[in-house]
Write a protein that binds this DNA or RNA. Structure first.
Lengths: 113, 113
DNA sequence: CGGCATCCCTTTTGATACTG
DNA sequence: CAGTATCAAAAGGGATGCCG
């Protein structure tokens, strides 16, 4: 550990991926490539339109995803991970793996009781 | 990306490290080894006692840190990272490095205007 | 020294209705 | 289809006082 806590920029990374639905949105886009708004909505049944819109806007603002509007009726909007956004993939995968191990860790702890 | 979004356990990992002061608490303990309550408090000037206590309890509950009480007057309580907790170090370092690069990314974006 | 209890404010998220 | 707008609920965090 050679990070000076005072100069910690973990929070800068957390700011991007924290949000109730952000990880799952990112995983869907990373897996499927390009997706339309309602396609994402259907893939995440419990999310509200408001939160999906909000999170997508925030991820776009940080250059993690790209938003392409096709000017037609009815509207069509496609979302995809930017090349820059791909740099988050490794961290998400590692967090997923750590999370999986942590679940097991907690289950073992409970069994011992 | 071979994670099925529906089985995503990124949130399990985020639950541990998300909290206004958790990353910096972890970095201090990872850097310094064992620290007393007030030592941590002084190292993180703006944190309140309430939040320090709360975050420490949550990290202890997840086996990330260890709390040792010395029954004496005045009281003495020492905190340290558990061996299990060390498994978080890699993720924190990578998030710090990503956060550092992201700051630069945003600065370049602003300069182009 | 290392807390806990209480009150209060802010931020995040949800429910619902409406629209070009 | 892809959003906005508004209101309400819940979660997170801060300020302060008290205690063994």
């Amino acid at each position: 550990m050679n990070i000076e806590p005072e100069l910690c920029q973990v929070d800068d990374a957390l700011d991007i991926i924290v949000g109730k639905w952000k990880p799952i949105i990112l995983l869907h886009l990373m897996k499927n490539g390009t997706m339309r708004f309602n396609e994402l909505k259907r893939s995440i049944p419990k999310i509200t339109q408001k939160m999906l819109t909000k999170h997508l806007r925030e991820l776009e603002e940080e250059d993690i995803i790209q938003r392409v509007v096709f000017p037609q009726v009815p509207p069509k909007v496609e979302y995809s991970i930017t090349e820059y956004g791909r740099s988050l993939e490794k961290i998400l995968v590692e967090m997923h793996e750590w999370g999986t191990r942590h679940r097991l860790h907690k289950m073992e702890k409970v069994e011992k009781r």
